[in-house]
Amino acid sequence: MHAKQPHLPADLTYYTELYPPSNYLENDELKGMSVELIKLIWRELNIPEQPIQIVPWARGYRITKSQKNSVLFTMARAKEREHMFKWVGPIYTARHILLARQDFAPRIRSIEDAYQYPIAAIRNDISEVALIEVGFPKKLIAPLTNLNQSILMLANGRLDLIILSQASIKDIVKANNLSLKDFKIVYQVNEVGNYYAFNKDTPDSTIDLFQQAFEKVEGQRRKLLKKYSLNIESLSVHNF
């Protein structure tokens, strides 16, 4: 039985960033794993398709943390965020890695081996959080606003290492007219579940309804994982 509309806030506002293959623009249309899945959840809940606002990650994070009835996706469920938001998911598991140019010679066997290199991470993104959680000095993190900026700085030799989701590498390299053969994965930092993050004042009853709808579309979610090559078990740590 579908959940009835009156139990759901009528004014939830949805935010996302551009971070393929989870959320991205194609011919000015918002697509991606998380986008398709939230539409299935809305359908399951008899909610009409809602507008999704595309914002820089730091802004979406700030809004969702402070404003009632806000939803941000896709957000990694890091320890430090656990009680700041309420969660529906997991949508998929992301593996965060350090990416270097192909000519980067040093071996990175532990995060300590990377201490001599500034690492670019998206400001307030899970990539920055992941580095801090594994003990990387915050003063050595180069905070940037988007993935395009970080991959271009890496390609141009202005940085030696960046951190990003492994599943995003192909899309971000292609979007910037670069070649995969010019880059390599040098270290895996973590694996973490990605979720729809709701403002912490969202009623538990609303979260429960969204989670139940999420679980009802599990079969379709698995198909989307395959479609977007987000099956973590199929990814080699050393390959794209």
Score class of each variant (00 low, 15 high):
Glu44Met: 03
Asp11Ala: 09
Thr16Lys: 07
Gln212Trp: 00
Pro51Met: 04
Val237His: 09
Gly157Gln: 10
Ser34Pro: 07
Ala3Phe: 08
Ala120Phe: 00
Ser150Gly: 01
Phe210Trp: 11
Phe240Met: 10
Leu99Arg: 08
Glu112Tyr: 08
Ala114Gln: 12
Ala114Val: 08
Lys170Asn: 12
Asp113Phe: 03
Leu161Ala: 07
Lys170Ser: 05
Gln116Cys: 12
Thr145Met: 10
Glu82Asn: 04
Phe183Tyr: 14
Gln212Leu: 05
Ala175Leu: 04
Ala100Leu: 12
Thr16Leu: 10
Lys68Arg: 10
Ala94Gln: 09
Asp113Cys: 11
Thr206Asn: 10
Arg81Cys: 01
Ile185Trp: 05
Leu30Ser: 10
Ser205Cys: 00
Glu29Met: 03
Ile151Leu: 03
Leu40Phe: 14
Met84Gln: 15
His7Asn: 05
Pro51Asn: 12
Thr145Leu: 09
Thr74Lys: 00
Lys139Asp: 15
Lys227Trp: 11
Lys65Ser: 11
Met75Ser: 04
Ile63Leu: 14
Gln188Trp: 04
His2Gly: 00
Trp42Gly: 01
Asn239Glu: 14
Glu49His: 05
Asn156Arg: 13
Leu230Thr: 03
Glu29Gln: 09
Asn190Glu: 13
Asp201Tyr: 12
Gly157Arg: 12
Asp125Tyr: 15
Glu191Leu: 08
Met75Ile: 03
Glu17Gln: 14
Thr13Ser: 08
Gln149Trp: 06
Lys226Ser: 13
Ala120Met: 11
Ala175Glu: 11
Tyr115Met: 13
Pro143Ser: 08
Arg95Ile: 08
Thr93Phe: 04
Glu36Cys: 01
Glu36Val: 00
Tyr228Val: 07
Thr74Leu: 09
Asn199Ala: 09
Ile132Leu: 07
Ile91Gln: 13
Asn124Gln: 09
Gln212Phe: 02
Leu12Val: 01
Ile169Gly: 05
Pro90Arg: 08
Val129Ser: 08
Val129Thr: 11
Val173Glu: 02
Asn27Leu: 06
Asn156Phe: 05
Ala175Ser: 05
Tyr228Leu: 05
Gln166Trp: 10
Tyr24Asp: 11
Val88Trp: 06
His238Leu: 14
Ala167Asp: 14
Met75Ala: 08
Tyr187Glu: 01
Thr202Pro: 01
Pro137Asp: 09
Asn199Met: 08
Ile91Asn: 14
Val71Ala: 11
Leu45Trp: 00
Asp28Val: 02
Thr13Met: 05
Pro51Ala: 11
Asn148Asp: 15
Ser150Ile: 11
Asp201Gly: 03
Glu191Ala: 13
Thr64Gly: 03
Phe104Thr: 01
Leu12Tyr: 00
Pro106Ile: 03
Ile232Gln: 02
Leu98Arg: 02
Asp28Tyr: 10
Gln5Ile: 15
Ile41Gln: 00
Ser22Gly: 12
Ala10Arg: 09
